[in-house]
Computed example of a mutant assay.
Amino acid sequence: MLKMQIIGNLGRDCVVNNVNGKSVINFTIAHTERFRDAQGNNQEKTTWVDCAWWTDRTAISQYLTKGKQVYAEGNPEVRSFTRTDGTNGAVLSLRVREVQLLGGRGEGGVPVAGGGYNTGTTGAAPSGSGTDDTADDLPF
Rank of each mutant, 00 (worst) to 15 (best):
V78F: 11
L101P: 01
R36V: 13
N20D: 11
R34W: 06
G103Y: 03
V78I: 14
V112W: 08
G103C: 10
V19M: 10
D133A: 09
N118G: 10
F81H: 01
D37F: 13
K68S: 01
N42S: 12
E98I: 07
S93T: 06
P76W: 01
I29D: 03
R36C: 09
G89L: 04
T32S: 09
T121M: 09
R36K: 15
T47Y: 04
D132I: 13
G128L: 03
A113D: 01
Q100C: 13
R97K: 14
S61A: 15
F81N: 09
T32F: 07
G103L: 04
T58R: 08
G103I: 02
L92R: 11
N26E: 08
D50I: 03
F35Y: 15
G115Y: 10
K66I: 07
S61I: 00
R97G: 14
V24D: 03
P111D: 11
D85T: 04
V70T: 00
T65P: 00
S61G: 13
Q39Y: 08
I60N: 04
A124P: 00
V96S: 10
N17P: 01
Q43H: 06
S23L: 05
T82H: 11
G109N: 10
R83G: 12
R105K: 13
T121P: 00
G108P: 11
E107G: 14
G130C: 11
K45E: 04
E98T: 14
W54A: 13
A125K: 09
G103T: 07
R95D: 04
A90F: 08
E77I: 03
R97T: 11
A30H: 02
D133I: 02
A72N: 02
V91D: 00
R57Y: 08
H31D: 14
E107W: 12
L94H: 09
Y71G: 03
G108E: 10
R83Y: 05
V49D: 00
D132R: 07
R57E: 12
Y117F: 15
W54L: 13
E44P: 02
I29T: 06
V19N: 10
A90G: 12
C51D: 05
P76D: 11
P126W: 10
T46P: 08
S61E: 05
F81R: 02
G116Q: 01
A59I: 07
T131S: 13
G89S: 11
P111W: 05
N41C: 11
V96C: 05
G89M: 07
L64F: 05
G74Q: 01
T119L: 14
T119V: 08
T131D: 08
L101K: 07
T65G: 02
A30Q: 11
T134M: 12
T87H: 03
C51I: 05
A113I: 12
R79G: 08
T121N: 12
K22E: 01
